[in-house]
Design a protein around this nucleic acid. Sequence first.
DNA 1: AGTGTTGTTTCAAACGTTTGCAACAAATCG
DNA 2: CGATTTGTTGCAAACGTTTGAAACAACACT
Lengths: 337, 337
Amino acid sequence: MKGHQVTIKDIAKELHISPSTVSRALKDHPDINPQTKKNVQDLAKKMNYKPNKVALSLLQQESKIIGVIIPEIIHHFFSTVISGIEKVANDAGYHIIICQSNESYLKEVENVQALLSSNIDGFIISMAKTTTRFDHFKDIEEVGVPVVFFDRPCEEIKADRVIVEDYIGAYNATMHLIENKCKNIVHLAGPQNLAIGIDRRNGFINALKEKRYPIHDYTIQYCDSFNHAQKLVPELLHVHPEIDGIFAVNDETAAGSMIAIKKLNKNIPADIAISGFTNSFISFMTDPELTTVDQKGYEMGMSAAQLLVNRMQSVEDFDPVTKVLQTELIIRKSSVR
Amino acid sequence: MKGHQVTIKDIAKELHISPSTVSRALKDHPDINPQTKKNVQDLAKKMNYKPNKVALSLLQQESKIIGVIIPEIIHHFFSTVISGIEKVANDAGYHIIICQSNESYLKEVENVQALLSSNIDGFIISMAKTTTRFDHFKDIEEVGVPVVFFDRPCEEIKADRVIVEDYIGAYNATMHLIENKCKNIVHLAGPQNLAIGIDRRNGFINALKEKRYPIHDYTIQYCDSFNHAQKLVPELLHVHPEIDGIFAVNDETAAGSMIAIKKLNKNIPADIAISGFTNSFISFMTDPELTTVDQKGYEMGMSAAQLLVNRMQSVEDFDPVTKVLQTELIIRKSSVR
DNA sequence: AGTGTTGTTTCAAACGTTTGCAACAAATCG
DNA sequence: CGATTTGTTGCAAACGTTTGAAACAACACT
């Protein structure tokens, strides 16, 4: 079925010279007779020769490929990050190979192993929600392939990372809701084994504490998806109609809440003010448009790739770097009253 | 910087046996002494040995990798397709490597070349909007690597493809608008060098013709992005306030239109009814929720991967297959009055 | 003793490429 | 004329793995 890629050997045979001469001729090596060079180069073009990257990778122990492992590509945030990674990686002569963990620990391990045995030059990783053991990352460390974590770093591994000011972002969003006269705000929080979950929750809580707002047993709800929010929010509002503000851990959850709230014929922002987190595409599709915290996906991708490129191209072993990006509160109509 | 992956040679040296014995021992070959086998397997586990896929790929001329080239990963439709591809590909023992063309012909060519020289076992491709020359696809054909096109096939290449009933989908959506008493519908159309652009446009036009609706010079507008729609729709409505229906080539464009229309204080669907195409995530984020044509992204990905796997695993050369998926009109509030 | 069988291991080639070194011819020098 | 230099090419090893064939020892059978 599969045909035959033209190789250096084919060219050599055709011209009755050795493969080494062909190789050198193609690289314009000064040792080669100009006429031979021309013959080789012409024939190579004519036969549509393409150097075999696999052979090169085996020989030179580098593949010019970066492995990217993310939870789910369908989330706009992650695809934005990938665009940022690709920009910087391509400019530096690298290609990327993207794997999804689908938020599954097992799939994440499998991906790491597969990439490790493919001579990948470096990793860019954002951990799955369900990952609580880290042997697979230790394996990477052991082999000595550089890793950069973004957004959801693994705390147990000494590696470069790019994160955003989650705490401050959450704090600012909460303060903004308070300034807009919310008296009873709940937080739809992310998983607490991830730093982003913890930090956003803490930013929220500390803003409330600073303003001496009471924290009830229902103030924190663990809910971080569109569907879950659609289900949970009506139940919550039924029991606690006094709620007048929601800070959601991400935009999907905020959007799910908005739809549920509008179905209850409550007005946003008049009855309930809402803020999300991420500033993804959907934050200006909703009606009213969603106040949110810009998570700088594209910059994050670029920074991660830049850190990795630096790491891959440097000889000595320098200490891990953590790059913290500033968030930005994007105020739209869902919270202003 | 980069350390050393454990190889078969390392194990061989350690146990004072030859690499071939190690190789066979690891594969449980019957020729090998059980004791030797155990020694090898134990040591391999202890040393955390992982077979080098690059060496295997070079030797066996197959990589178990599928190259996927899509226009833009940030579009929900494409990430949905990728999820479908990954599901089927992984189940069949393949990994995927994803490249974006960013709708650029040059980047598409570059991606094809890069993947071709990486011993990719097969391609899954959706063409860039700007691609009008097809030599790079011819190159793939020449080498004999199987290709499956999806959504935006290349008409010049004999290859498997998965598409949806674009014509019928567009026809049905238009009929639906007509049934909902639209008298003057415009179509925000996609590029006419892609079949999807042509087919959706034709489905729209033929529905109008069938109902003897007049087709004005402004009835077809070439506009297929969120931003462009936000800019174009107000201008259009200013000149032609009689417009009372919009059929957009995709959901992003429909969403952009909706936002623009609401800014003009017109009501959707009462003043203007709207249908999109794709049934992406955003179609139920908008307010009112968006009527659309389900483009079956996940199924499309699964079908494409399945066709490719069949092609890769079959020995003989059978004729290209075109799989046509049925669309489904999803009626939501943006069009019902 | 010679032949055959069985069990176990190693050798060598192959995949496509690069590269230090050796090889050889021709030209130049003293 | 012999020695050295210069220009050009080829050899062989290397990257990590697999695999047909060869090698070898131990043993059984005639």
